[in-house]
Amino acid sequence: MTIEVKNIVKKFSAFAALDNVDLKVGKGELLALLGPSGSGKTTLLRIIAGLDWPDAGEVRIDGEDALGHGASERHVGFVFQHYALFRHMTVFENVAFGLRVQPRAVRKDEAAIRARVKELLDLVQLDWLANRYPSQLSGGQRQRIALARALAIEPRILLLDEPFGALDAKVRKELRQWLRSLHSEIHVTSIFVTHDQEEALEVANRVVVMDKGRIEQIGTPGDVYDNPATAFVHGFIGESIVLPVEVSGGSVRLGGRPLNIAADGAASGASKLFVRRHDMQIGPAGTGSLEGAVRHVRSFGPIQRAEIALMGGEGKTVIEIDAPRDRELQAGEIISLQPRRYRIFAVQD
């Protein structure tokens, strides 16, 4: 099922939670809404579910106007960050809830409900917990039950609000892989909200990066990482080195010193140079655009992470780079740095 969001505006008193948001989600996609807290991603998800109402705009699910229906009529599966399992019901009854509240005319009989719940509990591999109460489950188990409950109504789309946010790192990692394989099994159009870039890049097949109520970029995980559209995306996804530079007529200067890199069509004026940590080429002193003293080196796995105090420029700028271990750096050593890949974005306002 497709989802289409057009010109959505949502204000909380004076604060614009969503500012003219447009989004199209294709059939069977697994889309991530990624952004810092306060970026409006959860609000957007809740509007699609019908748990919040926009001030202006359109929401279409499968071409049909969704704003004409309340949440209970949209057939949308929603998984809450804190699970929101019914605490007084067993796991079985939790999953059966959506089937039991259906209008009498379409409600399944008891045997069919039991069979369906059993099937869902098998799907999330927790059939042995059917008679437990939510308080007796671990966080990961609760989240999987919440998912089974949302799937019970055979939702047209599945919405997950920070599904793994409340779990510890190890469980989160397991559940990510599990969610991806579950999605390829059942193929329901899904959107999940996260503030964890790793989660978004690893699970989703498309990522929507949001900030301050606006969409900054929509693209595949590779796209948003390798070709960030804005300074915000570059800074938010992946680790970046950010240096304040001055662009004038095709040349780039850092603290008055020209850097040996092309402006790449960046407009003149105050700008920011973004370089990925691993995109700094290291050479002997005097061979690159930037020079610096190695202050500290930590080596692990295939890389060494070095803290480097840049020379020249105003004040002391310390950056962190990741270098391969073919040439071991020493603390105190003076080296030169040359950005291999970089982006220049004008400083806003």
């Binding site: 579910a49 019908g50 748990l51 309340g70 949440a71 209970s72 009529e73 949209r74 057939h75 949308v76 599966g77 929603f78 809450f80 929101a84 399992l85 019914f86 809830f97 959506g98 509240v101 259906q102 919440a146 409950r149 949302a150 019970a152 109504i153």
Partner: peptide, 8 residues
């Protein structure tokens, strides 16, 4: 909210 989204 969970109950409503499940159609209650």
């Amino acid at each position: 909210e969970a109950a409503i989204s499940l159609g209650a």
